[in-house]
Computed example of a mutant assay.
Amino acid sequence: MRNSERRRRAVAVAALLAAGVASAMPAGLPWTTLPTADRERLTARASRLATLAPDERAALAARAAQWHALPAEVRARRRAAFDAVEAMPHAERARLQEAAVRFAALPPETRKVLRDRFDSLDSAVQRGWLLGPTLGADWPGLHPLFAAMPEAQHAPAMLALRAASPQARADLAVLAQRTPPQDRDALRTAWLEAPAATRDAWLRARVDP
């Protein structure tokens, strides 16, 4: 099952559990098709919800209503940002938290300048920053190689990029620029298929024969 479909089903079931109507779940809802780990997590969440005081449940329901009142594109952006942060290594998340604290301490006019500067970036570069401060800084050069990546390559590519040295990411960006668009899929696939222990050297040899 694709992650997006699994997440959609999990959210649907979680909403029912939060509303306290799991026992009245229509037969068509896909509870039994969810992975065991998802069912266990949702059941545990329902148990925690059952211990909430009425005012706590009301506050939770109000937050859920506020969420569903947001435009679909806003919810999609926030889900993407949440998923991206969840996928980051702990050190990257810590750097983001520190940056958020520094940003919040800036004068309002400075924050506005920074927001406007970010909003002026190309959308592909903006999405690159969702990968964290390290890959986000390198993404303008790497983006051409990963813009049309098959879903099956996404997770392996992100793992390989996070494991790559700064020099290797720079080399990959150089190769991405040198390689014609029609040949970039083959370059990315060959890079992923190179043994992890020698992948950086594989790149270096192609940039500087």
Rank of each mutant, 00 (worst) to 15 (best):
Thr179Asn: 02
Gln167Gly: 02
Ala58Ile: 03
Leu106Arg: 14
Arg111Val: 08
Leu135Gly: 06
Val101Ser: 08
Arg41Val: 08
Leu70Ser: 06
Thr189Trp: 00
Ala91Glu: 14
Ala155Glu: 15
Glu73Ser: 00
Asp200Arg: 02
Gly128Asn: 10
Arg102Gly: 06
Arg188Asn: 09
Glu40Leu: 08
Pro107Gly: 11
Arg45Cys: 04
Trp67Ala: 11
Ala173Asn: 04
Ala61Tyr: 06
Phe103Gly: 13
Pro166Gly: 01
Ala94Gln: 15
Arg57His: 14
Ala94Val: 15
Gln126Met: 14
Pro181Gln: 10
Ala163Gln: 11
Ala61Trp: 11
Arg95Cys: 03
Val85Arg: 10
Val13Met: 00
Val207Tyr: 00
Leu159Pro: 09
Ala105Asn: 10
Trp202His: 02
Arg39Tyr: 02
Thr36Arg: 08
Val74Ala: 02
Gly20Tyr: 00
Ala46Phe: 12
Ala157Asn: 05
Phe118Glu: 04
Ala176Arg: 02
Arg77Gln: 13
Ala100Cys: 10
Leu42Phe: 12
Leu34Tyr: 11
Ala173Arg: 10
Pro89Gly: 11
Gly20Glu: 02
Gly132Ile: 07
Ala50Gly: 13
Leu130Cys: 08
Leu16Arg: 04
Pro195Asp: 12
Leu145Tyr: 12
Asp138Phe: 01
Leu175Cys: 00
Pro195Arg: 02
Pro35Asp: 00
Gly20Ala: 06
Pro133Trp: 03
Pro133Ser: 13
Thr43Lys: 07
Arg78His: 09
Pro35Val: 07
Arg111Tyr: 15
Ser120Asp: 07
